[in-house]
Amino acid sequence: MDLPPLSDEQLALVVASAQSPANLYSTLSDYETEACLLSTKDGKQAELLSLYYSTFFFSHLLTDQIREARLSTKRMPQNLLQSDPSLQNCLNLLRAVWQRKYEQVYTILRELPWPEPLKPIVQSYDAHFQEKTLKELSRAYEAIRPAAAATYLGLDPASAQEGDPATMQKFIACGWTWDEKTGLLHPKPIIEDSQNDAQLYNELSEVMALVGNRRT
């Protein structure tokens, strides 16, 4: 069945109705050929292309296709990529994710200007990145200093290092233990379960609340 023509309204509907990141990625992939036919010289079409390619880019990240996200930037109209603020933000984010610069990732997601229609998916990736990092920490460390853990998870390192109760509770809520004598956190390994993409997509906002969606 043919898809409805790509438009701002249709793109918003695709994002709102996607049952999972994988579903969103699949649908946006089907629109890529049509997007290639739009002109960047037409102001309205250029705005649509910016929103489409930015959304498509985040659908790659939400499905952990980092290499493919990198390749997708090569298929974008290069004149638009070099001049559009949102796509420039995407490029900066890609570099930070690729190089595992955790603080920079959170700064880009939370402090750079993003257009209103894109903000929900930006926030979803913030939550996804935190959750993924939390699982990586739980497997990689038997003990870790609170400031380091906070940096990885986008929390305030100074508050964590001082043992701020509200900050420490966010770690404890994840099953970690806090040894006040040694000043170390002991992560609890998080076992991957059989949750499907749809459940994960619906629970991203809960993850944000769990590990803190903003530094204070």
Rank of each mutant, 00 (worst) to 15 (best):
D64Y: 12
N23P: 05
S29A: 10
Q199G: 06
V15G: 03
S39P: 00
K74C: 10
G163W: 03
T33S: 13
T107K: 13
N213T: 13
I172W: 01
Y25G: 08
P120K: 05
T40C: 07
D8Q: 11
P157G: 00
T73C: 13
Q161M: 07
Y152F: 13
T182K: 10
G154M: 03
K132G: 09
N23V: 11
V122M: 03
A166M: 11
A198E: 10
G183H: 03
P4K: 01
T107L: 10
V15T: 06
E136Y: 12
D179Y: 03
A160Y: 05
M208A: 15
E206F: 14
S26G: 07
A158D: 11
I144L: 05
Q45P: 03
M168E: 01
Y53F: 13
Q45V: 06
A46Q: 09
E192A: 09
F56H: 10
S72A: 11
P77H: 00
E162L: 12
A160K: 06
P157W: 01
A148N: 08
W98T: 14
L11I: 00
A35Q: 01
N92A: 10
Q99H: 11
T63G: 02
I108V: 06
P115Q: 12
A149E: 00
S59C: 00
Q10K: 09
H128E: 14
N23T: 12
R215F: 13
E116L: 09
S205Q: 15
E136K: 10
Q99G: 07
K41S: 14
Q88Y: 07
A143K: 14
K132H: 14
L48H: 00
Y106I: 05
I121L: 09
K41L: 15
E203M: 11
G175F: 01
Q78C: 01
D164T: 04
S194G: 09
C174L: 09
P77T: 00
K170R: 15
F58L: 03
S54L: 05
S26R: 11
A35M: 00
A173N: 14
G163V: 02
Y102E: 09
E162P: 08
R110Q: 13
D84G: 05
